[in-house]
């Protein structure tokens, strides 16, 4: 028996306390302010959509994942993030179905946490966008009566109930794209505009993301390179033709860019493992966001940009393998 102070063990000699549940619960904690603001802005509808989405994410995790997997919090994050990307007036059964699809087909079929190529929340969102395009692009105004629903919140599955008196408004990006009117940048920064549950306040997302980056639970290189790329590219087009293209600050503050760049692109499972890879990943997302927003048929492209770059991550990881210490040439993993 050796003295405990002299115990020799094999590497890695980790001393950090961070484990998967620690990180996940910290992310959930940093999402709480955003959730509270979204409930304040969109009232009871936001609460119901969040609840349905979380339930839809937890159910398949509980049924098909290994025992105790729910406790690590990753499915809860998926549920909250999906809800934050949805419009507040969406029928809650759709939120449930989207979260269920995202976790079951985006994560569990690949073997659970850590093995999925695509971000489950965004996959659920893309599934909903493909299946119910109208419900996903109806944007009620924030505020109003606390107990009034913002749309067909309680509609039955696959029934087409139309809400009689939901007041809707276009999102700032939609206004820009289809009517060429801009929204005040200050409003966008503080976030009292139409939009999804979580995309309204840029300042709040930045503060919450800043906390995570400070705790090193978030790869700051990814949002940094996304913001830089979007600012540079859209700035370039703005200089060429200010009448036709929106200004770079508007591009940065509007839509889901903040939420996507800070909370979704940085998902540890579906982002590259190397630092160089993270820069490439971020630049790719930024460029795709600008391309889809300026020339695409959709007003918002953050979700698709992240999903497309998710698909490229295995490739990026392979390209950016660091040189092994002591070896001259780059080790080719492919051969």
């Amino acid at each position: 028996m050796s003295a405990p102070g002299l115990l020799v063990t094999a590497s890695p000699h980790l001393s950090a306390k961070a484990s998967t549940p620690t990180i996940m619960w910290n992310v959930i904690g940093s999402l709480v302010p955003i959730v509270i603001v979204s409930i304040y802005l969109f009232r009871i509808s936001a609460l119901l959509v969040l609840a349905a989405s979380v339930a839809g994410a937890l159910l398949p995790e509980r049924i098909w994942s290994r025992v105790g997997a729910v406790r690590d919090g990753s499915a809860l994050i998926t549920g909250i993030l999906l809800a934050l990307t949805l419009p507040p007036g969406i029928p809650i059964w759709m939120a449930f179905a989207g979260a269920f699809f995202g976790v079951a087909f985006g994560k569990l079929v690949f073997g659970g946490l850590g093995q999925n190529p695509f971000n489950p929340a965004l996959l659920g969102r893309a599934f909903l966008q493909a299946a119910f395009p109208v419900a996903l692009t109806t944007w009620p105004l924030p505020g109003g009566n606390w107990l009034a629903f913002k749309g067909d919140t309680l509609a039955l599955p696959l029934m087409s109930a139309n809400a009689p008196d939901a007041v809707t408004a276009a999102t700032p990006l939609g206004l820009m794209k289809f009517e060429h009117t801009s929204t005040s940048l200050f409003d966008l920064f503080l976030g009292f505009t139409g939009g999804t549950l979580g995309e309204t306040s840029a300042a709040l997302v930045l503060i919450c993301g800043g906390y995570l980056a400070w705790r090193r639970f978030l790869e700051w290189r990814i949002p940094a390179s996304i913001f830089a790329t979007v600012a540079l590219l859209s700035g370039l087009f703005f200089l060429i033709d200010p009448a036709r293209y929106p200004n770079p600050l508007f591009m940065l503050l509007s839509g889901g860019l903040m939420l996507g760049a800070v909370f979704m692109a940085t998902d540890m499972v579906t982002s590259p493992t190397t630092h160089k890879g993270c820069w490439i990943f971020g630049v790719g997302i930024g460029a795709l966001v600008v391309v889809i927003r300026l020339w695409g048929g959709l007003a918002e492209g953050v979700m698709y940009a992240i999903l497309l770059m998710n698909a490229l991550v295995p490739f990026i990881n392979r390209w950016t393998q660091p040189t092994l210490f002591g070896s001259r040439k780059k080790v080719d993993v492919a051969s």
Binding site: V109, F110, L123, G296, G297, L298, A311
Partner: peptide, 29 residues
């Protein structure tokens, strides 16, 4: 460690569907 249920062609189809969903972002470009 893919569950037995999804191994093989099933998983391939699911990946194909996910990729296709991602490519919908280019629609109307």
């Amino acid at each position: 460690d893919v569950p037995d249920l999804a191994k093989g062609t099933a998983l391939t189809m699911i990946i194909a569907g996910s990729l296709s969903l991602a490519f919908m972002g280019f629609a109307g470009l």
